[in-house]
Structure formats: C-alpha cells, structure tokens
Write a protein that binds this DNA or RNA. Structure first.
Lengths: 224, 224
DNA sequence: TGTCTATTCAATAATTCTCTTGAATAGATA
DNA sequence: TATCTATTCAAGAGAATTATTGAATAGACA
C-alpha cells in the first residue's frame, strides 16, 4: 500500500463518522437516540420525517457504525453503538455553541420564551436536592426515563403533568429537566408549574450531558 | 420562532461543524494544523493538493469556525480555532478505529511495513526516559517541534537524521515519534536507526494525542 | 514605479447527497 | 391461509459539494 493510498484509507474512514453526523436530520436522530433505544416509527414521529426517510438515514448511520439495531417482534430498535458517540455529539454541540455565540443567545431566548422560566445551575440544584429543599422531575417520555435518568429524579412526563400535580410537594422548589439544553419540554413544564404557584426551575442539562451527579441506567445501576 | 424552526437553527449549526470535518481533504488539513500554524502553501505541499483547492477548503473550515487565520507579511497563517477542535479530531479517530477493526490492522501493517519497526507503549517509554535508559526524538519538521512537543524530546527532523546521528548516545534506546499513529515519519526514522545499529522504537502517539506525560508549547510553557 | 509572490475569487463539470414516491419484504395476527 | 403492520428497497428529480482552471487582488521588494 502506497503512503498516499494509506492516507486516503485512513482519512476516508475517519470521515465516514463525520459524514454521518453532517446532516441535520441524522444529528437529530442521534440526539433522540442518546435518550435510549427507539423504533423507526417512533423516531419518524418525533422528528416529523417520513418513515422511509428515517429508515434510510438510520441505515447510513448504521453503515458508519454509529448505531446498532436489534429486532423485537416486528419492531426494529435502534440505539447508539457506543458511549463515545454520545460524547462526540456533546463535544460537537459544545464547540458549536462556543464558536457561534449567537447560538447560545437564541437558545436562551427560545427556552425562556413565554416568560417565567428561570434556569438553575447543576451545582445549585445539587445543593438544593441534597438538603431536601427541592425535588427533581424528569418530564421526558416514560421509556426515556426508564432507559437512563438522573439520580433521585421522579418521572412525570410532560403530557401527564397536569394530572400528577398533587404528587409534588407544596413549598419546595421543583426542578425540571428533559433531553438537554435544546429540548423545550422542561420549559413548558416550568411554565405550567409556575402557573399553579410552584417555585419551578429548569435544569440547563439533560441526562446525556450528565454534568450533574450520577445517572441510573435501565437496570437500576449507577453509571460512571 | 417556532419549535421546528428553532430545531432547524440548532441542528443546522451543529452540523456546520461536522460538515466541515466530513471531507477527507479537510480532515487531513486539520490534522496537519493540529501540529501548529502553517501557511496555505505549506499545507498544499504537504497534502499534495493545489493551492487554490487548499485555500478553498481552508475557507470553508474558517466559516465553520474550526480554524482562524492571521497575516504575517504576505503569508496567511492558519491554525486551529480552539483546542476542542483537536479533541474532536482525536475522538473521531478513536471512534473510527474502535468501530472499524480493520483500520487498526491496516495501520499497524502499514506503519511496520518494511520490517523492524517495534512499537513502544507510552507507559514503558516514560519509565525508560525517567531512568535515563532512553532518549526521545521528535522527527517532525522543526517548526512543528517549536510549536509544541513532548517534554524532554530533542528535535531531529527526518530529513536531517542521517547527518545528526552522532548526536545520539550509543547504547541507549532511541524512541522516535512524529505526528501521531497515522504518520509514517517515525517508522522511517526507526528503520534508518536500526540500520545503523541503534535499538530504536516508534512511540505509538504524537504530541496532539498527548497520552504521554506533558507537552511544551512555543513559549516553553508546559501544557495541561 | 513595476514586478513578483501568495492568496483568493469565479466559473465549470463531475460527483454525491437528500427527500419523495411507490413497491417489496418479512414477521405477527386473525 | 389471508391480512395487517413495520420496515426496507429502488428509482428519480433537485440541490449541494468537490476539484480544476484561469483570472484577480494585495502586499513585498527592487
């Protein structure tokens, strides 16, 4: 193998990874998959894409070895192939936000749009949780909570928030989180809660970012 | 801004980063830039690309905020915009090598082709260096050494190796490194040295990977 | 001032990627 | 067995990306 041929081989493989990450649709799919395994149909619904297109993107992700699939009954479940894929997503997001300052601005504008969405830092949240001054709620779908969630978080999917309000302690802070900084569920939850008199905050992270304490996986084991 | 519009905005920005990394040529350019600032001409020569094409790629890298340029006389120097860019390169390489097992095989085949290129681990190298049983040489170009190198390394560019052989202590191991695992300079150096009777080894990393001890930047300060 | 050099710009053809559509498959259910 | 459902496959139009070429710019140097 010639030196140039070798380089083409190596760089060709490296860029298989980044090529797969280079479509906004695929990046979004991976971002959802970072919350846990999902079927093609579910992913199509969440990203508002056609099933055929979703399947096609998932296949190119599989070719790039970023996801793996398994079959249960006649559903195909897709999930991230490696924890380093989640790291890659995170690093890319962090870099984008650092290098394009308007991104951060638009994000805070958007996540706090509609007013009354105070954000709490993970450090402060940890203190409040440790001292019992606050409760932590996970407003994502139930299966996402089941697959992995932050320690001590209670699952209250956004869709069931109204009917489960009585489960929340009066007089304590309520800290909500969802998929991460670019997911809007937690903000919606905070607005609902504030409307009902709760002192609610949005945690500026999701479990895949995991700067806060530990996480718990599907088997109840602590991660990391 | 609508929710979907917001997602398009966010994912569009994330993928600017990965799009920029998704061309083998650009990945290679970044890989060279991880060794230190370089002019367009120099990069074009090292990658065997036309100057116009190099310039064009550099510009799309600049748009993606992965590199920045500065002007000295009538040369334009390009360099990585942020240390996280180097991390991103590294993570991508590591993931590729893990997910495509044949990559690692081809690499060791290639870097040891021609025979007699034993590799030494960074842990073992550290011991040998600490105890004085070995010397460490950096066989990259001088300016790459100047911009950043491993602690205690001596600069002996591959092109000057033959004439500087007398600088090397007889009876000690000689450990050579270059840009990293996919650069062939160190292997060439080891073959030359072995041909002259030295007990030479290739270090399986470069300064940008920095698993070994510390590095020293252009001002002589330790990094990290 | 004129000439030289390094870099960028602009236009082009070849290639590759994206999304849509409709058909095909394969397993579950009745 | 037939039917349904979830997923994949195949083909095509439209858009974006790549490398090439030659011209344009802008600063250095004589």
């Amino acid at each position: 193998m010639e030196a140039r041929e070798f380089k083409n081989f190596a760089y060709g493989h490296f860029t298989k990874i980044s090529k797969a990450l280079s479509s906004p649709r695929r990046f979004e799919l991976l971002d959802y998959l970072a919350q846990g395994p999902k079927t093609v149909e579910r992913l199509a619904k969440e990203t508002h894409m056609s099933v055929a297109n979703t399947s096609q993107h998932l296949q190119s992700l599989r070719e790039a070895r970023l996801v793996v699939s398994s079959k249960v009954k006649n559903h195909h479940y897709y999930e991230l192939a490696d924890n380093e894929v989640a790291e890659l997503l995170q690093l890319t997001k962090r870099l984008a936000e650092r290098q394009f300052p308007d991104m951060g601005e638009v994000r805070t504008m958007e996540t706090t749009a509609g007013g009354s969405v105070p954000v709490i830092s993970s450090a402060e949240a940890l203190e409040d949780l440790a001292s019992g001054r606050a409760v932590l709620i996970d407003v994502r779908a139930e299966d996402e909570y089941a697959s992995r969630h932050l320690t001590d978080a209670v699952s209250i999917p956004l869709s069931q928030l109204e009917e489960k309000l009585e489960q929340l302690p009066v007089g304590k802070k309520v800290i909500a989180y969802c998929r991460g900084a670019y997911c809007l569920y937690a903000s919606d939850a905070v607005r609902v809660l504030r409307g009902r008199g709760f002192e609610a905050y949005r945690l500026d992270e999701g479990p895949a970012d995991s700067a806060i304490s530990r996480e718990i996986d599907a088997d109840g084991r602590e991660i990391r």
